[in-house]
Simulated scan of single mutants.
Amino acid sequence: MTDALKRLSDEGVAIWLDDLSRKRITSGNLGELLDEQHVVGVTTNPAIFQKAISGGDGYEQQLADLASRGVAVDEALRMITTADVRDAADVLRPVFDATGGKDGRVSIEVDPRLAHRTTATIAEARQLAWLVDRPNTFIKIPATRAGLPAITETIGKGISVNVTLIFSLERYREVMDAYMAGLEKAKALGLDLAEIHSVASFFVSRVDTEVDKRLAALGTDEAAALKSTAALANARLAYQEYEKVVAGDRWQALTRAGANAQRPLWASTGVKDPQLPDTLYVDGLVAPNTVNTMPEATLQATADHGEITGDTVRDGYAAAQEVLDSLAKLGISYDDVVQVLEDEGVEKFESAWRDLLKSTEAELQRLAPKEA
């Protein structure tokens, strides 16, 4: 079952699970995935927590305790989510130790309602790092315009960051610049750069969803020929940008000071179109020093029938650029696509968080002790 996953790992792709719940931790399932499926990390987001906590498995006692103490819903939710991340980090700690901090990481996202507030995001990142209190935590900060300086300041304080919701090549370049600026701040403060890690989460499948919708509206043969090609092209060109940065003088100076590369992380790798191969965004994005964070269905599909044949990124730069050029010739605006996706991404996470707040508040009210 795990040959394809092993081949993927051997090619330099770290396999992370894009899911977490208390039941997954307490049942031993997370440990099994580490032992049997080559999983070496976990990512979470507001939608994942909304699904887990609303499902109810394993949260009743903590919710009852919080209700009896009269804890406000925002604080209650943070206590619940950080408890899960802390426990997951403990499960992954052996991987963290064995890889020198490169893997064995668990990500937790700042409140998505702060996505356009720089100072509040920085404060939230510090608070989450303090609450979880595990060295193998990544604090997720969205790559919005306001998020960029927050990334720099958070890295500059020595807190490791997973930059999320990256869709465009230009924004990705800005994210890498923000990371290097943060490392330079940390170095100036005398911090050990070897202790600071980061990944840049470049979203994949949502690009095809948006572009394919626009191609279908055109209804031409030329448009049909480009269906489901944009996402892989975009991600491959992102890796090309990564290679340019790590070869540059600025990055090389940081490397000599002990800095760790900010690995590209392929996010949103479950296919949205059921007509597509379910391992498309795994098989097509094999490159060294990357991360692929997969929903469990994608992980199991890759284990069962993934076609891992070596590097599928670095020989494809010219073809990838041709795809984006062809889309532009058809009148599909790359800049508009990526801006729509960023706006929708922030809104989806805000919506999931609001739903989670609402359902958690209802549970706290239900479980609150009835005073005589």
Results as ranks from 00 to 15, higher is better:
residue 111 D to G: 01
residue 297 A to V: 02
residue 16 W to P: 10
residue 66 L to Q: 10
residue 194 A to D: 14
residue 287 A to P: 08
residue 30 L to S: 03
residue 335 D to I: 02
residue 10 D to C: 12
residue 104 G to V: 07
residue 130 W to G: 06
residue 63 L to I: 13
residue 207 V to W: 05
residue 235 A to W: 04
residue 73 V to A: 08
residue 22 R to P: 00
residue 255 T to S: 12
residue 178 A to K: 01
residue 36 E to Y: 02
residue 354 R to G: 05
residue 64 A to I: 04
residue 84 D to A: 03
residue 177 D to L: 03
residue 103 D to C: 09
residue 177 D to V: 03
residue 116 H to G: 03
residue 172 Y to G: 02
residue 23 K to V: 00
residue 351 S to P: 02
residue 14 A to Y: 02
residue 197 H to A: 13
residue 139 I to T: 04
residue 263 R to D: 00
residue 24 R to H: 05
residue 352 A to K: 04
residue 174 E to Q: 15
residue 351 S to A: 13
residue 349 F to Y: 11
residue 189 L to K: 15
residue 343 D to F: 12
residue 119 T to P: 02
residue 284 G to R: 03
residue 123 A to M: 13
residue 54 S to E: 04
residue 229 T to N: 14
residue 370 K to D: 04
residue 372 A to R: 11
residue 230 A to G: 09
residue 311 D to I: 12
residue 352 A to W: 01
residue 72 A to N: 12
residue 342 E to S: 02
residue 333 S to Q: 05
residue 133 D to I: 00
residue 117 R to D: 15
residue 40 V to D: 10
residue 347 E to R: 15
residue 368 A to Y: 06
residue 199 V to H: 01
residue 18 D to R: 05
residue 282 V to G: 08
residue 364 L to R: 07
residue 344 E to A: 14
residue 19 D to K: 01
residue 338 V to N: 07
residue 71 V to H: 03
residue 21 S to F: 02
residue 229 T to M: 14
residue 227 K to Y: 14
residue 187 K to C: 00
residue 70 G to T: 11
residue 310 G to Q: 07
residue 11 E to Q: 14
residue 141 I to T: 01
residue 352 A to D: 01
residue 332 I to T: 09
residue 40 V to S: 15
residue 7 R to H: 13
residue 58 G to K: 06
residue 339 Q to S: 15
residue 164 T to A: 02
residue 247 A to R: 11
residue 143 A to T: 07
residue 192 D to S: 15
residue 222 E to G: 10
residue 250 R to M: 02
residue 229 T to F: 06
residue 169 L to Q: 12
residue 162 N to D: 08
residue 138 F to D: 00
residue 339 Q to D: 14
residue 277 P to A: 07
residue 264 P to R: 01
residue 268 S to M: 10
residue 21 S to C: 00
residue 332 I to K: 04
residue 258 G to E: 11
residue 270 G to C: 03
residue 259 A to N: 09
residue 155 I to Q: 13
residue 151 I to L: 13
residue 261 A to H: 12
residue 340 V to D: 15
residue 356 L to V: 00
residue 106 V to R: 11
residue 16 W to C: 05
residue 162 N to F: 10
residue 278 D to G: 03
residue 115 A to D: 04
residue 337 V to F: 09
residue 165 L to Y: 13
residue 121 T to K: 08
residue 317 Y to R: 02
residue 190 G to E: 12
residue 351 S to D: 09
